[in-house]
């Protein structure tokens, strides 16, 4: 009797897992097929909406001319540097204000004030102050990334269970140990939510920043193609955004599951 149940369970779960893995890709694949069919059948004007295949061909052509690699890698460079600088700043500020009352009193109001400025509205200011070189684009990404990381680090630290802190003190932990064993790991889930959100902001900011004035980057490629109604490249850029966004999300998720193994295991048990 027990054997029978086990067997059935195994088989069921086998199918289940496969299905679950495929499930997320059903909609994108169906959409692309529909799109191709609609263009081939002439329901859509191929002048306005080229088929997925011609977008792919456009991608291959741009790859061969080296334009695609150049623009994607430049965007990636700007995104990475901006994220690294803005993320570190946000993290350090979040730590300071989460841990120190003095720092909080000193800076929090100011930060909250700046936080509500849409960071893209800073574009004219950034151009005047930093010009139109790499630093302008990178600093815009910085500003965009800074706040989600700051807020999540801050609220993660403020949200630490005071009972755990008391326990740590009762067990003789010093300040440094309290931080490394309780405060930081306790705030980490919230911080990682911030990281994930910031990765999204990173791309959107960069794309806009690259359309201001640039002769490179994906944002440039798209706005440039748009100007000349080059729909293949416009759609190619959109697909690249989607892929980069997904890639960032996968990286963030993997980071979460690596750092927060305890949450996943607990979840499986509940």
């Amino acid at each position: 009797m027990e054997n029978v149940t086990t067997l059935r369970e195994t088989r069921n779960s086998g199918i289940h897992i496969n299905w679950h893995r495929l499930l997320p890709w059903v909609i994108p694949v169906v959409l692309i097929i529909l799109w191709q069919v609609a263009v081939t059948a002439g329901w859509l004007d191929s002048q306005l909406i080229p088929s997925p295949l011609s977008v792919l061909e456009d991608g291959v052509t741009l790859w061969q001319t080296g334009e695609l690699e150049k623009n994607v890698s430049i965007s990636l460079f700007r995104a990475t540097v901006g994220f690294a600088i803005g993320g570190s700043l946000g993290f350090v500020l979040g730590l300071m204000n989460g841990l120190s009352k003095v720092a909080r009193g000193l800076t929090d109001t100011t930060i909250q004030m700046f936080r509500n400025i849409p960071h893209l509205s800073l574009i004219p200011l950034v151009i005047i102050l930093l010009g139109i070189g790499e630093s302008a684009k990178i600093s815009l990404v910085c500003v965009g990334v800074l706040f989600p990381i700051y807020i999540n680090t801050y609220s993660g630290i403020r949200g630490i269970d005071p009972e755990l802190m008391e326990m740590g003190r009762a067990y003789g932990l010093n300040r440094r140990q309290l931080f490394s064993k309780i405060v930081f790991p306790g705030a980490l889930p919230t911080i990682l939510v911030g990281v994930r959100y910031a990765l999204g902001v990173m791309w959107t900011t960069l794309i806009v920043a690259e359309t201001i004035s640039s002769n490179s980057g994906i944002g440039y490629m798209a706005s440039n193609a748009q100007e000349f109604m080059d729909m293949d490249t416009v759609l190619l850029c959109i697909v690249i955004y989607a892929l980069l966004g997904k890639l960032s999300d996968i990286i963030a998720k993997t980071l979460e599951s690596l750092c927060l193994e305890w949450q996943e295991k607990g979840g499986a048990n509940q």
């Binding site: 009972e163 755990l164 309780i182 790991p185 306790g186 305890w262």
Partner: peptide
């Protein structure tokens, strides 16, 4: 009373 275990350890 509540165990006050560290969930991440």
């Amino acid at each position: 009373q509540n165990d006050r275990l560290l969930p991440w350890m």
